[in-house]
């Protein structure tokens, strides 16, 4: 179980990316986190992954406080072309993290092959990542995460850089993996359709600093189909609701939801003073990237 209480993170330039965010994710849940771009989604994900140390609050994974990168956690990044190593073959890319699992060379190779088969790429092992299409590369990074056998899988806008058709295939791949492996998955996205289609539950963040704006269960059956599910009245209703929440959150923080938020809103606006949307997006990446 992943438990986040009072999570706060501000960068050294004073920009507050996350402000006392609370979130609990049950084991085996597939949670979509959706919010306007630049709202601090990536910062949240990097805090959970232990890549950045939050300035306040607590994150526990299966009871243990997150301090550094947890052992049984994997991430699928949006930018597959940079997160796959171009000097390693596809199989070596998938097998590299498995050294930590104390497996022999043969076992690592077998595990890599199995993971590649489960994402539908049984014959790609000897190729290099850059010889594959974008969608296939993202399949490889999903295979790498699966082979690692994490209890928590984080996906940071995983389908943001592929075409629409591939995107639908990959969404179905995530659903299939989730059903087969029973792992907890956190999918960060800015696509409202996708958040509803893939998630068991959708959490909407409001614009920077990020805080939980709304939290709604997806009351669709576990079996989903790109065409059928998206036509269901329930899907349409959920999509509209999430859409309203995201848009509302983007323009005036907290315009729609729970009345309790009203008091905090004014402080939100004060936080934003002098920080335009551009600088926010910048400082979000600037915090994790060394300045050149």
């Amino acid at each position: 179980m992943l438990q986040i209480t009072g999570l706060t993170h501000s960068y050294s330039d004073g920009h507050v990316a996350i402000d006392s965010l609370d979130l609990t994710v049950a084991d085996g849940e597939l949670l979509s986190i959706v919010g306007p771009s630049g709202c601090g989604k990536s910062t949240l994900l990097r805090c959970i992954a232990g890549l950045i140390r939050p300035t306040g609050g607590r994150i526990t994974l299966n009871g243990a406080a997150v301090d550094g990168v947890p052992d049984d956690l994997a991430v699928v990044f949006q930018d597959y072309s940079r997160s796959l190593f171009p000097w390693l073959t596809v199989r070596d890319n998938v097998a590299l993290p498995l050294r930590r699992r104390g497996k022999s060379r043969a076992e690592r190779r077998a595990a890599a092959q199995e993971a590649l088969e489960s994402v539908g790429l049984p014959d790609a092992g000897r190729k290099y990542p850059w010889q594959l299409s974008g969608g296939m590369q993202q399949r490889v990074s999903i295979a790498r995460a699966l082979a690692y056998r994490p209890s928590l899988l984080l996906m940071d806008e995983p389908f943001g850089s592929v075409d629409a058709q591939t995107r639908e295939d990959l969404e179905d791949l995530v659903l299939q993996v989730h059903r087969a492996e029973k792992m907890t998955i956190l999918l960060v996205t800015h696509d409202i359709d996708e958040s509803v289609y893939v998630g068991d539950r959708v959490v909407v963040l409001n614009r920077s600093p990020a805080r939980v704006h709304a939290d709604l269960p997806v009351t669709l059956s576990a079996d989903r189909d790109q065409i059928e599910t998206r036509g269901l009245p329930e899907f349409v209703r959920l999509r509209a609701e999430v859409g309203r929440l995201v848009r509302g959150g983007a323009r005036i923080p907290g315009a729609v939801p729970a009345g309790a938020a009203g008091g905090i809103l004014k402080s939100d606006i004060r936080h934003q003073k002098g920080v335009g949307p551009d600088t926010m997006a910048d400082s979000e990446s600037g915090g994790t990237r060394p300045t050149r």
Binding site: R46, A49, L51, V69, D71, L73, A74, V75, F77, D79, R82, S83, F85, W87, L88, L96, P97, R99, R100, R144, Y148, T288, R289, P290, R292
Partner: peptide, 29 residues
Amino acid sequence: RGVDALQLETARVFGVGRFRRLFQVILPA
């Protein structure tokens, strides 16, 4: 110094140790 930050983060997330990180990620990059 120019090694992609995302490549380093990927190595950290997947528990690639210091030594391997140097020889299998940083120097090849």
